[in-house]
Design a binder for these strands. Structure first.
Lengths: 352, 352
DNA sequence: CTGAAAGCGCTAACAA
DNA sequence: TTGTTAGCGCTTTCAG
């Protein structure tokens, strides 16, 4: 059997009887080359099945790799899948590829990943920061020309480009929607850990709305969960309170699944729900699910655009892009509160 | 300002006053080194923020890159996200990373991607083949030691390891479920293009079930769509037939969204549905959605395990792993056919 | 325990 | 239009 070695530039050159540089020139359309030589080189390339070694190339050219490194907490969460699709869509034309890794929302794994990315000399580093992660170590590489972009959550210890959703105002709007329907006791099923940026922001928006309506904030109505199953448990707990909420705000797509499932299981169609982040078939549920939709694809596109700008030399100060959320009323948020008659809530027809 | 150059091994060596090789030894725990030297080297590494250049390393070691290249048709489809998560979970401990690219289900883009991956010397190439793609060009690299694994669909022109769902028997089981509930006219909303492997297999299973029950196959009841919106249109078309189906089988998760949405929009709770591929909150829909669940994460894990085996020297012949699907009856498949009274269908209580 | 030299596969900078 | 030389940053080999 032939040696199981991949053919190199030199192999091709030997085959054709020219120098390696000539082959290189033909392949990269670098300098000039005669039509004859080009033809023979290409034939040899085909014959040997030669594939240029990009790694070797970039050691010589010194430039960065042609990849964008992306660290997400969970590859199977469609939210991050959509973000990735947005990034890819934008950077693809430049020939950049996406290198993805999962941090499992763990600061150590995130650090390992970012270090690996840097060791690979990615052109751009994009990170969805984990709770407790520190990004100071990215300062030097960033100064050396590697753009660093934080997505969904801001970085820690490093000021850099950031793309987030309008979490706070979105949550505020969603809760205001519930209040307008007459609700006075509104629960919040957020994700853990409580230190998570998106959770904090959404909770802040929730409180903002309560304050605007002069409603009391009750610690009892705020719960945490991580998986849908836990969210379902928390929903059950809330409903069994002495003075239960008549409406719920969910903290993210996974929470939504748990909350909606539990309500359906209990046949509680009377509990109003506004969900953070859209889910498939939300309009098909009974009642149709009112959501505060994020736009993960737009977030990815924005990150991608910023990355390209930076690679093209934009050295302006770090930008923060806030991708707006959209309240999509579909029904579940307009369910009248049981106490509506006696509340300050306006008539539901005003919201039809 | 300091030069914006990343520090190299030589920089560290100079800083400490030792040779590059010594630094290399310390960092890779290669040969022996005195505690004193090690300490000073590590201090310098820290001080300069040195990150070894993996690209340069692998040119010398000649070995493959430490990445797994994965080509999927759509990054934002949660099915492939789950596959990716399964792969990552298995290969992560080996230090391998996932390099992902989207082919947009286009054979040319797929070829470009696989070529790029090969140029980067990925350790393993995993591909969800696009319709019309040819994989003969992967033969040589595979012979040279790069495992090639096809996922979800078999490759074309190259026999290699493959991981697929039990599409045909799964579909057969789903349709048999509908037939058992008394349905005799069952529509199929599959994805385009018709040449797609999964569509062909699922359609074959659909026909198998009809044949087993001595039911006629009607071309009219088989439709194609690509997006949920088209699936909705096709559903509408089927329902408006002179002799409409009383039950539907959906071809994949996107089709499901379109079909279920359209049925809900029309308030047609009497149309039975069995969906290929599970969707979130399927049990919450009205009626709860009966599905033929795939296990994309297990598919990814299987692909990952095969990859590791191959990398460890397993040269046995190509294996094909069929990951079983699971019929999950939740209600939508047991809806009685309008003609049930006169049919061979059993009583619904038998399926409660 | 440490270092010097050579070389991985490729391209930059010069020639010719 | 083509070739030569040097060198990217690292590791291998072989000496100290």
């Amino acid at each position: 059997m032939r040696p199981l070695r991949r053919p190199t530039l030199a192999d091709v050159a030997r085959e054709v009887g020219v120098s390696a540089k000539t082959v290189s020139r033909v392949l990269n359309e670098d300098g000039p080359s005669s039509a004859e030589t080009r033809k023979r080189v290409l034939a040899a390339v085909e014959k040997l099945g030669f594939q240029p070694n990009l790694m070797a190339r970039s050691t010589r050219t010194g430039g960065a790799d042609t990849t964008v490194g992306l660290v997400v907490p969970d590859l199977s969460n469609p939210f991050f899948g959509a973000v990735a699709a947005g990034i890819e869509e934008v950077v693809h034309e430049t020939g950049l590829m996406l290198l993805m890794g999962s941090s499992e929302d763990d600061a150590d794994r995130e650090a390992t990943l970012t270090r690996t990315f840097m060791a690979r000399r990615v052109s751009v580093l994009m990170v969805v920061p984990s709770v407790g992660a520190d990004h100071a170590h990215l300062k030097a590489p960033r100064a050396a020309g590697m753009p660093v972009i934080f997505i969904d959550r801001p970085g820690n210890g490093l000021t850099s480009d950031t793309v987030v959703s309008s979490n706070r105002s979105g949550a505020r709007e969603g809760v205001a929607h519930l209040i307008a329907a007459g609700h006075r006791r509104i629960g919040f099923v957020g994700d853990v850990p409580a230190a998570l940026y998106t959770r904090r922001e959404r909770l802040a928006g929730y409180r903002d709305a309560l304050v605007s309506a002069s409603l009391p904030y009750s610690r009892q109505l705020v719960t945490d969960a991580h998986h849908p199953a836990e969210a379902a448990e928390q929903t059950a707990r809330l409903l069994e309170l002495k003075d239960p909420p008549s409406a719920l705000l969910t903290g993210n797509n996974f929470m939504t699944i748990g909350v909606v499932s539990e309500l359906a299981r209990r046949g509680r169609r009377d509990v109003a729900v506004v969900a953070f982040d859209d889910v498939p078939m939300a309009e098909t549920l009974q009642p149709a699910l009112t959501v505060i939709a994020q736009d993960p694809k737009a977030m990815g596109q924005s990150a991608g655009k910023t990355a390209l700008d930076r690679l093209r030399g934009d050295r302006s100060r770090a930008r923060t892009v806030i991708v707006p959320t959209t309240l999509i009323p579909r029904g579940s948020g307009e369910l009248p509160s049981p106490a509506r008659a006696g509340s300050r809530g306006r008539s539901p027809t005003e919201h039809a």
